[in-house]
């Protein structure tokens, strides 16, 4: 009896110890992942003087936002010194339509493939899935040629087109998998109620798609905003997205290396995706785990 008590007590202690070990590990990992952000933020708030004299991980003695101002509107890339501002707008003008169009088309594709089963639906879906796994590099040359033929070379609409095409595989996959768990009886009921293809889509399917729409928008926005390769390949001076501009600013070789400006620029470039996660991250998790939609 006493042995029993002793052993339950000891297992409890082991369990507690393991739990604390787990927390400790999690905290360590969190610190590990936060460290670069910490360095970026602190560095961006220091003056160049302080960076040269102080240590990398120290807090700024004197907080200054000069570097942020420079990064936003005065940093030089190549010969122009107008900061990230114009490129930030380029990225917005590129990403917002590309995200919306690819999400909308993905929703319609998924709806058709999952709910309006037609001959060859599975084949088409497999091909689209295959499209998700084609490396960027493979499509560069054919895409450049196609954009040239369409008269969209080097333009922002061209970049939108590229991102829509490349994103369709993923967005279709997301929506198809979401819709495939919905009983086909729903669409049958709507057909008998007299609704047609688009009416059913608008009135029945889109309203119950909010979680997957959020997931898709976050995914697509992150992909498109952060893309560098398509941006650098299919843009020209004036139409470059922010990732390309950031690279140009950081790699400008004239004068001294302004680490604080570089860091501020990098944070500015990353900020929109961060904001999207903070605002909609909750839905992201919910959408990913929401298996089926029960009526």
């Amino acid at each position: 009896m006493q042995g029993d008590l002793a052993s339950t007590a000891s297992t409890q202690i082991t369990r507690l110890a393991l739990r604390w070990l787990l927390y400790l590990l999690l905290v360590l990992f969190a610190l590990y992942y936060l460290a670069p952000l910490f360095v970026m933020v602190t560095t961006s708030l220091k003056s160049l003087e302080e960076i040269k004299t102080g240590s990398l991980v120290s807090l700024p003695r004197e907080v200054t936002f000069d570097a942020w101002g420079t990064a936003w509107s005065a940093a030089c890339s190549g010969i122009k010194c107008e900061g990230l501002k114009p490129y930030f707008w380029n990225s917005i003008v590129m990403a917002v339509p590309a995200v919306l169009i690819s999400t909308f088309l993905g929703a319609i594709n998924g709806y058709v493939i999952a709910q309006w089963r037609f001959r060859g639906a599975n084949l088409i879906f497999s091909l689209m899935l295959f499209g998700c796994f084609i490396p960027f590099q493979v499509v560069l040359l054919p895409m450049a040629r196609l954009l040239g033929l369409m008269g969209l070379a080097g333009s922002i609409p061209g970049l939108i087109f590229v991102h829509v095409v490349y994103g369709l595989g993923f967005t279709t996959l997301f929506f198809r998998n979401y819709y495939v768990s919905i009983s086909p009886e729903l669409i049958r009921a709507a057909k008998i109620d007299g609704a047609g293809f688009f009416r059913i889509f608008w009135s029945v399917f889109l309203p119950l798609s909010v979680p997957i729409i959020v997931v898709t928008i976050i995914w697509q926005f992150t992909q498109i905003w952060n893309d560098f390769l398509f941006g650098v390949s299919f843009s020209q001076a004036g139409t470059q997205p922010i990732t390309v501009a950031l690279n140009n600013i950081v790699n400008s070789t004239t004068g001294v290396k302004e680490y604080n400006v570089d860091m501020a620029a990098a944070i500015i470039a990353a900020l929109p995706t961060l904001i999207v996660y903070v605002v909609a991250g909750k839905y992201f998790i919910r959408g990913l785990t929401a298996g089926s939609v029960k009526g």
């Binding site: 009983s183 009886e185 729903l186 049958r188 009921a189 709507a190 057909k191 008998i192 109620d193 007299g194 609704a195 009135s203 029945v204 309203p207 119950l208 939609v293 029960k294 009526g295």
Partner: peptide, 21 residues
């Protein structure tokens, strides 16, 4: 003739109610 013009109504096993309405 399409289902909507057959003058029928149907009740389904899963009820098939529109979840968001």
């Amino acid at each position: 003739i399409s289902p909507k013009d057959r003058d029928i109504a149907m009740v389904f096993q899963s009820y098939a109610l529109y979840p968001t309405m």
